[in-house]
């Protein structure tokens, strides 16, 4: 009776398991990268500069992961990337309530992107600001689970909402790598599991490209933390 119950639970658990294995992630990325490259058309168009930049990064990272064999990257890395000025960072920081990126469950727009920029600078002044906010974001994701990252301030439209969310996942992945702290990779893996269903039926290229970038970075971080 006891063994039967546990076997039954194992089966139900497998049936409801929504986590994606490394192989499933690889297949999704490779297939959708190929599709996007085909559909994108002329990448010289300045409006597509950011997408081309992401695609260049995806290709480089797929090479490291051994997911593509062609060393020649079909994209080049010469698109102008917007320079982040110290003044932009400080202006965004000033807009925070009590220095917190999350207030009453509402996340400050730009949190993923700007916290990553603060972390890259490695200034002692920023350290506790970044660390405290990262812990708050982690707690928000882990306790609200699929109801996390729903509201941003200022209110994000559907299009930028996905960018905001994916930038937070990227922040988590890069933090896990920078600080060798698997708790952040753990949260990123969960977020990506939840976001998979959205992107399986999603055709919007910029969002898809950003999601693919998130997934390859996740797999790289996983490989580096647990070789």
């Amino acid at each position: 009776m006891i063994n039967f119950s546990h076997r039954w639970i194992d089966q139900v658990e497998n049936a409801f398991n929504r986590s994606h294995s490394g192989n499933q992630v690889r297949d999704f990325v490779v297939i959708n990268y190929g599709r996007v490259v085909k559909e994108l058309g002329d990448v010289a168009d300045p409006k597509k500069a950011e997408i081309a930049q992401d695609l260049w990064q995806i290709h480089e990272k797929m090479l490291v992961l051994g997911w593509v064999q062609t060393k020649k990257n079909p994209f080049n890395n010469h698109h102008p990337v917007k320079k982040i000025l110290q003044i932009d960072l400080r202006a965004w920081e000033k807009g925070l309530r009590e220095g917190k990126v999350i207030h009453a469950g509402i996340v400050k727009a730009g949190a993923g992107f700007y916290l990553d920029q603060f972390a890259i600078q490695k200034k002692a002044l920023n350290e506790s600001f970044v660390a405290d906010n990262l812990e708050q974001l982690l707690k928000h994701v882990e306790t609200r689970r699929e109801k996390c990252l729903l509201k941003f301030d200022p209110i994000a439209e559907e299009k930028s909402l996905w960018f905001e969310r994916l930038n937070i996942v990227l922040l988590f992945i890069r933090t896990s790598h920078r600080k060798k702290d698997p708790r952040f990779l753990n949260a990123a893996l969960k977020l990506n599991d939840w976001y998979f269903s959205h992107f399986q039926s999603q055709t919007d290229i910029p969002d898809m490209v950003r999601f693919l970038l998130v997934l390859v970075e996740q797999e790289l971080a996983f490989k580096e933390l647990f070789p």
């Binding site: 882990e142 702290d181 698997p182 949260a187 893996l189």
Partner: peptide, 14 residues
């Protein structure tokens, strides 16, 4: 110390 949360199945496997 750090606050830990429910572990993802892939990390559990490791």
């Amino acid at each position: 110390g750090k606050q830990y949360y429910v572990m993802h199945p892939r990390l559990q496997a490791v």
